[in-house]
Amino acid sequence: MITAGIDVGSLSTDAVLLRDGEVLAYSIVNTGAQARAAAERAFEEVLEKAGISLSEVDTVVATGYGRMSVPFADGQVTEISCHGRGSAFLNPEVRTVIDIGGQDSKVIRLDGQGNVIDFLMNDKCAAGTGRFLEVMADRLELSVAGLGNEDLKAERAAEISSMCTVFAESEVISLIARGVPRPEIVRGLHRSIAERTAGMANRLGVMPRVMMTGGVAKNPGVVRALSEKLGAEIVVPPEPQIVGALGAALIARKKRSGKA
């Protein structure tokens, strides 16, 4: 049986194809201005990569904030359940998932079977999310992907006290004006995200093992800062951005076969 999961996020849209519990292929495209078009693009790309035709796919489940904009999906499941399911599949020992996506961040607690037992999600604000890092990277003339390396060059972290994207940006501007080295500013930003995320995680309670998913998990600076703040080791899967789509494909498989 072949199933697909499509995660239409605010910044990226990801697709995963699964055959009998094995990942055949995945794709990551920019969501841009049209969620539906992005979903179609991601789906076409993943089919092409796997060399599979549309008719061979048994079930498609959509997730992410654009999950209702995927006309070819057979069902919709929230990204919270999908990240939980995907993380448990990648590492059955995971009990806490920290997902930082483009416009929101969430902390999910799992039982031993990949079921969500509790979760928290940030409020309507970009603080501590992928969008926050995008704005700051732009201000610092770096790519988002370059932030992790820049952090490694720092000897200390600049103090950034505001969690708000707009205020933090003006703090960054004044740090630049004072001639603070760029790596220190980057590390300061990573600490600021870590602090906010750890606050949310501690409210829910952190149980090992901890896995981090979502695009921001690709940034080793954030992962390290968060690991320090939590005092816990953090597992990062090889491709953290596709965990939501993977979870959706797994749920599609369960839906199709009807087995728990």
């Binding site: 929230t78 990204e79 919270i80 359940s81 929101d104 969500v116 037992i117 999600m121 309507k124």
Partner: peptide, 18 residues
């Protein structure tokens, strides 16, 4: 914030239905 609240409520219901 309706979209965000809807996601949270849906996730909560998915959790209750499991």
């Amino acid at each position: 914030d309706s979209g965000q609240i809807k996601t949270r409520v849906q996730a909560f219901l998915e959790m209750l239905r499991k």
